[in-house]
Amino acid sequence: MRKTCLNSVLDLARRDARVVFVGSDLGVGTLDAFREELPDRFFMEGVAEQNLIGVAAGLAMEGYIPYVNTIATFLTRRCYEQVAVDLCMHRLPVRLIANGGGLVYAPLGPTHMAIEDMGIMRALPNMTVVAPCDAEEMARFMESTLELPGPCYIRLAKGGDRVVSEAAHGFEIGQGIQLRPEGEVALVATGIATTRALDAAEILTAQGIEAGVLHLHTVKPLDEARLLDLAGRARAVVTIEEHTLVGGLGSAVADLLVDRLPGTAPPLLRLGLPDAFPANYGGQDDLLALAGLTPEGIAASVGDFLDARRAA
């Protein structure tokens, strides 16, 4: 997904002289082709994220579209005020390409795991937050980044993630994609959690529970119309994300249902990471399993939730 994303930046740069790449101490091999082909618009800088965001803002003020790339935690936590003031307040078209969204960097420990990135980015006015589910969707998304007026946070997954999106779905920022037809339960997911949601839906179907899957590649702006439409018919809505339950997709959906369907919203189950810094290493899959975010774990949580509703 990362390779696809960065190759897309080069493609966009070939077509549009406004595109510049700004990286922060990224390893050899990252965009060598960009450096060779368009050296004037390729900046590989040091580890100084506050400065990089400010520089990107200055370049954007001069008409450029900077694509800034580094590790997600450093692109969000380290320079939050610069992102808020320099980018969001001025509504500048800077693209933040965040490596290792969620638990990708499990072996590196909690300093490198972006468990609240979508929440803190979503909290900023004018910010767009996107988490594609696979490399092919990433490629389709990148096409739409040239003309997006404000800043955009792009959450990258590990890479080599199973492809579940289809070209026929297209890509429009802010528009959810119904990847599995609606059932009695509406599973709603973002990023690679969508793949797990699809697998969980298979398990649920085998258990006699029809579950649809709505993929929200865009967490902000939220596809409110589709969610409200869906919520009007579903017995339950379940959000699934590789993110803490503080401020992410589940929070966004909860806000929407509470605000817009007072008293009539279907029951909502939010699945995600606990409000805690990960205390284990291992791999992304291990930590997801610990949080119950395997297909089996998701299916079991949904089954238990529905049972409890029936009993109530």
Binding site: V20, D40, R41, Q50, N51, L52, I53, G54, V55, A56, A57, G58, L59, A60, M61, E62, G63, Y64, E81, Q82, V85, D86, M89, H90
Partner: peptide, 23 residues
Amino acid sequence: MSTGGLGHGLSIGLGMALGARLQ
């Protein structure tokens, strides 16, 4: 540029100056 929080302007000015150089 809107400013107020301290320590933003020099990086922004750097980006603008870089923009001048590039163009």
